[in-house]
């Protein structure tokens, strides 16, 4: 029953729209962070992760893991987001064809 409810929520049209908007905002922010922003601070403890994510977005894996070892979390999150976007768009295309 709970699985069915969860599936219903995930397949909900409004929730899909919300997810797409969130991914769009994340994409724009990460583009800004990766290519148009420069670090001005001397480097605090949390800088490691931010700098690691930035390196990951520029596809510089070596320096990403040098800054912070926990950056592998983002290595899993980014493909998951891409797969979710593909599934939503595919479903929309199939709906339009029908």
């Amino acid at each position: 029953m709970r699985l069915k409810k969860l599936k219903k929520i995930i397949n909900d049209n409004d929730f899909e729209n919300a997810r797409l908007i969130i991914y769009l905002i994340l994409f724009i922010t990460f583009i800004y962070l990766a290519y148009f922003n420069q670090f001005t601070c001397s480097g605090c403890a949390l800088c490691g992760m931010t700098r690691a994510v930035k390196s990951l977005l520029v596809l510089n894996f070596k320096s990403a893991f040098e800054f912070n070892n926990n950056v592998w979390i983002f290595c899993f999150i980014i493909p998951f987001i891409v797969i979710d976007i593909v599934i939503i768009i595919k479903r929309r295309c199939l709906k339009n064809e029908k």
Partner: peptide
């Protein structure tokens, strides 16, 4: 603030503002 983590942290208020 000097903390760079706010760069990532600022995404969530933007999402709620759009909402």
């Amino acid at each position: 603030s000097v903390l760079c983590c706010y760069m990532i942290y600022i995404v969530f208020p933007i999402i709620s503002l759009v909402g």
